[in-house]
Design a protein around this nucleic acid. Structure first.
Lengths: 156, 156
DNA sequence: GTGATTGCAAACCTTTTGCACGCCA
DNA sequence: TGGCGTGCAAAAGGTTTGCAATCAC
């Protein structure tokens, strides 16, 4: 009980500071959403976050949840578990290979990894799950966009 | 030139056989879409596939492209580069960890990999790309759905 | 006070579904 | 011929955008 309270206070403080540090105004909507995400390990959707959060803050709108999630994702507070964009993309190459996704241009680059250095999947997973496919997904900035960014800096 | 022709013929034959083997009726729409996917390494969207394919088969509809892509994906002819489902999902845990995605229930399971066994990213990628995040993504069937499948089999 | 943030509504984009017609086996 | 596959149209599902009112700083 006491622990719980202490935990809440510190989570709250953490969220407030995170917003301040990133020059976001500290609004109850943001704090509640962020607090919830710190606790919810179920990889929730915007919809399910909205449902839970609305109980504590009945006036909150779904759009605010969506927008706030976008803001937090851009700032790196949270991760979006999804490839890049809404339109689905397809790959005729079903051989084992891996992807680098550029977060600026959404381009996907293939690369290979030496089989010998493929990661060790935990035994528990190997035994209890049926693994059909393994992919290493890198996210970041591709050479082209890196260059474009530099160019933009130089013209400032 | 000659090579090109030979290539086309064999690609075509390959696509026809692949459909037949999987008891799909061989329609020009399917063959053209499949042929295109064999060549296009750009990880195209349904839209961009539609635009290209329409040039060869002006009557084709966008819906057919979409439906065909679904069919091919289910049969494993091609891969869908996307996380699981359209609604985005979020993760408050931005520490390095990895995901198992169940293709039946869409549940996402976290797991850790010993840092020492993390895969070797090719030097070319390391040098030319800015890597912000690396995740190993496994796809398959989770223990719960595996059990459910077994149960269903037993009641047949 | 002022500018960022919110809530509401509409717009937008993509995928799915239902149905009649046409084509492949 | 029979039934799968296609094209068309409408619906559904989710995210984004524009705008006026509100709130944090």
């Amino acid at each position: 009980m006491e622990m719980q309270e202490i935990e809440n206070i510190s989570t709250d403080t953490y969220c407030v500071n995170l917003c301040k540090k990133n020059r976001l105004k500290v609004t109850p909507q943001r704090i509640i959403i962020l607090e919830h995400l710190m606790k919810d390990k179920s990889h929730p959707s915007a919809e399910s976050i909205y449902i839970v959060v609305k109980k504590k803050l009945p006036g909150i709108s779904f759009d605010t949840v969506n927008r706030t999630l976008n803001t937090f994702t851009k700032l790196g507070f949270i991760d979006m578990i999804e490839s890049i964009s809404t339109p689905r993309r397809f790959d005729g190459d079903t051989d084992n290979h891996h992807h680098f996704c550029c977060e600026i241009c959404d381009e996907i680059y293939d690369f290979k990894i030496d089989d010998l250095t493929l990661p060790e999947i935990p035994v528990k997973i190997k035994n209890e799950f049926v693994i059909k496919n393994m992919r290493v997904v890198l996210r970041g900035i591709c050479p082209k966009c890196k260059q474009d960014n530099k160019d933009a800096d130089n013209t400032r």
